[in-house]
């Protein structure tokens, strides 16, 4: 598989937070989930990719092109949805579209009209009067109307009801039907990614903690339940997280086989993405 976007040694320092030489790549034809708790560095990373933040060091390459040198060509092939809309609230849907559309050489008016119709958006409605969900839909319509190859979305599902979140996931899957398309999707609501993500990148404190295929990640980890008497000095270090109660224990491990041998009667379950994220982000504190 070839990569569509490569981020190398991205560094950005703020007073109380920094992106620390972040490196990762996004594969063509994949939905990559970018997960992490609030303040982990997801938005800073995405804004850096979109050129809204100036990193102190690092490079961004898109399909072999250097962002610093071919910004216009690259941005022409990227669609984006930002967390708070970032629109001019006093403009109408149609006026905002009229501002944005000429920026893209491959803008497709018919596609935009189709999305607007599908989402039930009124072109003459002021953006300020749109609900959070409708504003997100408008952002999606703009992002998908110029035949982008990479769709970058920053927390698009936060503030949306389950119905709308599900609709958005369906849109992403539709988008991926076309060959060569990719999605980079940041969220702290990991359940959104359970159905759609192919790859997962976990960021915390400005550092990448995990970067793996979702299925491999879920296969390599397990949620284990059992009798507290089975927890001893040999088994305890095999857990990423461990919660003990008078009735038993529950924990998450990435050493399934070793634990299966140590406690063959324990219950092994497939974890959720959230289990894994929380284990790596706050695992040390929970386990000890």
């Amino acid at each position: 598989m070839t990569s569509i976007l490569e981020v190398n040694n991205l560094t950005k320092t703020y007073d109380q937070f920094s992106l620390d030489r972040l490196s990762f790549s996004l594969q063509k034809g994949c939905i990559t989930g970018f997960i992490g708790v609030n303040g982990a560095g997801k938005t800073t990373t995405i804004k850096s990719i979109l050129g809204l933040i100036n990193p102190e060091a690092g490079s961004i390459r898109f399909d072999g092109m250097e962002m610093n040198r071919q910004e216009k060509q690259i941005k022409n092939r990227i669609g984006f949805v930002l967390d708070e809309g970032y629109f001019y609230g006093m403009l109408t849907v149609k006026e905002m579209k009229n501002v944005i559309a000429p920026a893209y050489s491959s803008w497709d008016e018919q596609t935009f009209s189709n999305w607007i119709g599908r989402f039930g958006l009124n072109p003459n409605q002021k953006i300020a009067s749109l609900s959070t969900g409708m504003r997100m839909k408008f952002a999606v319509a703009l992002a998908l109307s110029h035949h982008a190859d990479l769709l970058i979305m920053d927390e698009p599902t936060s503030g949306l009801d389950p119905m709308m979140r599900s609709e958005l996931m369906a849109i992403l899957l539709d988008f991926m039907k076309e060959e060569g398309k990719s999605v980079f999707f940041s969220t702290h609501i990991t359940s959104d990614l359970d159905k759609v993500a192919d790859m997962l990148i976990l960021i915390d404190g400005g550092k990448i903690l995990l970067n793996e295929e979702k299925d491999t990640l879920l296969d390599n980890h397990a949620r284990i339940k059992g009798d507290s008497r089975w927890i001893n000095e040999r088994t305890r270090p095999l857990f990423l997280t461990l919660r003990e109660t008078p009735y038993g224990f529950e924990g998450l491990t990435h050493q399934k086989e070793a634990l299966r041998q140590e406690m063959p009667d324990a219950v092994f379950e497939r974890p959720t993405i959230e289990d894994i994220m929380l284990a790596y982000v706050g695992g040390a504190e929970i386990a000890h």
Partner: peptide
Amino acid sequence: AFICATPYT
């Protein structure tokens, strides 16, 4: 910010 994220730059 939205405009600067597009090819307008």
